[in-house]
């Protein structure tokens, strides 16, 4: 299964970035093979608006089936939901730890955004 973990760096030992739309990096990891690749999110990190929407679009285009992050706002959540990507909020620690927690099967997918949008 391909999952995305928002990260503050490009390695598995970097910390999870609690922000989704404005995360520094997306780590795209394959939970079966253990392979991973870092995708820079600088364009959305610096966007004046719409960062969550565009980050969610990027996640969909990367073929992710789930996203592990700290928080997701309403617009990003709407896009992820439309793309049928499961959202797991509240991730913390390193990317490696987040993946391990996910693989343990104890996480429950979020049903709604867990933070408010910036415009409403």
């Amino acid at each position: 299964m391909k999952i995305i973990i928002t990260s503050q760096g490009s390695r598995l030992d970097d910390q999870v970035d609690p922000r989704f739309g404005r995360a520094k990096q997306f780590i795209l990891a394959d939970t079966e093979s253990g392979q991973f690749a870092a995708h820079d999110n600088a364009q959305n990190l610096n966007a004046p608006q719409g960062a969550g929407i565009q980050a969610a679009q990027a996640a969909a285009r990367l073929g992710a089936e789930a996203v592990l992050t700290g928080h997701v706002g309403p617009k990003a959540f709407a896009v992820l939901k439309a793309a049928q990507i499961a959202v797991y909020t509240g991730a913390s620690g390193t990317v490696r730890e987040a993946i391990a927690t996910f693989k343990s099967g104890t996480l429950v997918a979020a049903q709604t955004a867990d933070v408010e949008g910036h415009w409403n």
């Binding site: 966007a47 004046p48 608006q49 719409g50 929407i53 565009q54 679009q57 896009v79 439309a82």
Partner: peptide, 22 residues
Amino acid sequence: AQACRYGAIASLPQQTLVFAEL
């Protein structure tokens, strides 16, 4: 979505979403 400077469109593999408020 590429043309939109304001990030108001999400182009997904199966669907295109418009966030009119942006």
